[in-house]
Nucleic acid binder design. Sequence first.
DNA 1: TAATTCGCTAGACCGA
DNA 2: TCGGTCTAGCGAA
Length: 779
Amino acid sequence: MKRKRFFRLYDTKFEPYFYVHARGAPGEAREEAAKISMLVNGESIAPSRTELVEKLLLGKPVQLVKVFCKHPTHVRMLRERAKALGTVYEADLPFARRYLIDKGLTPFYSLEFKRKGKEIAELLSSSPTHELKLRSLAFDIETYNPKGSPRPEKDPMVMLSYADEESGVITYKQIPLPFVKTVAGEKQLLEEFSRLVKERDVELLLGYNDVAFDLPYLKERAKATGASLILGRDGKSSFRTQSRGLFSYAKIKGRLHADIYAVAKFLSLIGALKTKRITLGEVFSEMFGEEKKTVKKQDIWRLWDGGEEDLKTLAEYSLHDAIATKRIADEVLPLEFELSKLAGASLQEVCGATTGQLVEMLLWREAHNQNRVVPNKPDADEVRARENAPVQGAYVKLPEAGIYEGLAVFDFRGMYPSIIISHNIDMDTLNCDDCTDAEKHVSPLGHKFCSKRKGLIPSVLERLIDERDRLKKELKKHAPDSAEYKPLFARSQALKILSNSFYGFLLYSRSRWYSRPCGESVTSYGRQYIQDTIRKAEEAGFHVLYSDTDSIVMQLSGKTKEEALAFMKAINAALPGRMELELEAFYPRGVFVGKKLSGAKAEVGAKKKYALIGEDGRIKIRGFELVRRDWSRVARHTQQRILEAILKEGSKEKAAEIVRGVIQDLREGRVKLEDCVIYTQIRKSLKNYAITSPEVAAAQKAIKAGIPVEVGTLVGYVVTKKGKSISEKAQLVELAEDYDPNYYIDHQVLPAVMKIMKELGYEESDLKGEGKQSRLGSW
DNA sequence: TAATTCGCTAGACCGA
DNA sequence: TCGGTCTAGCGAA
């Protein structure tokens, strides 16, 4: 039997609908609903039929009127009239997803069905596809912009590069390189691309920021040159963009599309990608440790106007952009395929969707399967009320500054998800009628959750976590570089991302499943578990140095590792449900530092700031300046070196020498300018800042010099010698001619380093080489 | 127009 | 010129 992967099918029997929870008697409301009608452009619009159905609303069965519509667009119109009868539900779900949910269909699953002509007669089964190999093509364009910013209606496109197994460049100048194909002109270039997409029968088109740039540019140029740009499999359409909040995605008929920039942005948001900027070059070198060929955007037109060597440079650069996009895509798309399967939404919807959106997509599907009504989105007043009522979060124990030896770190595995599952925390199980008060789970704040009937969120979370546990076992059977490993790992990652997002979703002000009692119950249970564990550790004779949310750092205090593990076992024996304390690792040595003092207060320890060295010599660093991008490299690097000297070698003298050396280098101008750059993001419009901070001042000067700074720009600035305040001295690195050594000594290196050196008995003057190097007690 | 709270730190700003 | 307060960004979990 021949299997077709693309098939146009119709299901004309499926009707769009929404629900009404009537204020009055459901039977009467049904009759009223049937009579709804409105006139739109001379056409009378009315429900096709109505039904009474029983669904669960907040966990309790209710009778709802199900209003069927003749056309998807009628849902939006008729729901407004239906509001007179009661509360309208599920009237804001995109029709395509409504269909997938109701039919139990999932993207990337294979499907068996019976058909009559082009009509679906019967859906038989659907199952996950294993090896999913799509014919993909990455592309990138170069444009001729002598005036700086691109003007798509005027500035032509000069090159288009593409990459899959083979890669190449299409252009309209002769360039003697084997991968370059030369056509007659820009019009022919566009048509050659259309032909390429068709000929290769591309199933998945890939770009980097192409939804915002390349695709619209192609369309504009097709219009300007009279070229026909055909990307769709129907042989006539190009593409459409669908806007979704701040983001947009592209739809190409019969082909999938993924904007890898959106994927990179998502990965950056959840912390899986740690580049300063989300440019193709930075993402590429972060992932593969190789540099990408680069050409400055403003130089492209000059290279195009230049000689043969310039053209070669441009073509190579262009080619490499397409190849880089393809390689990044190969790396990140397995995760997106899994997210698409889990959330039950198309690849283009899922690429770049936030965790909140993914959770909502998944819950909507599961709510349907459990016959629950999906709650509505909150209105603006409700959103504001929620934002103004934050809940108490996690407990963080104050550490005492010092250098310690013989440490053990334990943490609760997936603490918040485990709490939600173990205590059945859900808006539907809150104050239920299914069990007695004595049987209920009672949170430390007194909220009561059902112990008999599982809620929507706990049931979904449990399924995700069970599957992830199974996958983790499965993963151990395969080598990390084997073909089997990659998709399994991607699925495990997708499950982790989703399950860690549920707690946030409970307290997210625009969430359909927002519940303050649920959210604050989760954190209150969390505080209770961790504080109980700390108390029991102390009772068992360990000294707990520090704790944050779900983890504790304790000193063995003369006890053995085995005794520490026995303690863990005892804790676990008393924990309910899925709650579990795990050993993170043993650490021979660790540093906790003091907080910066304000005024003459006594020294206190700093939370969220420590460094531990593992038995394997690896250092775990949290919160220090060296992990922060808004500190200069000279400060970060110096801090790192002294931490290593202290933790690895236990040598305070070496640490002191390092600091003295760097200070000398700064004084004598041996530190490179690029090591003095401080990166800070401009997060709002410049005029909205109440305070002119250094990065804002640098941005203002940059704009005057003709360098654009938009919202979201990461400004790299240097504190120069010229000016009085720091803001006056701050200049964009591109505009900076020198740096102020005193600033980098007193405001960067020393503050970063002194927090640690103080624990070793050093004073600032000991390192600046001014004062006496005295009274250095031993430790 | 799409997850949370807790916490540290800087530099500007402001009043005495 | 000082010390306190405020704004803002980024990181931990």
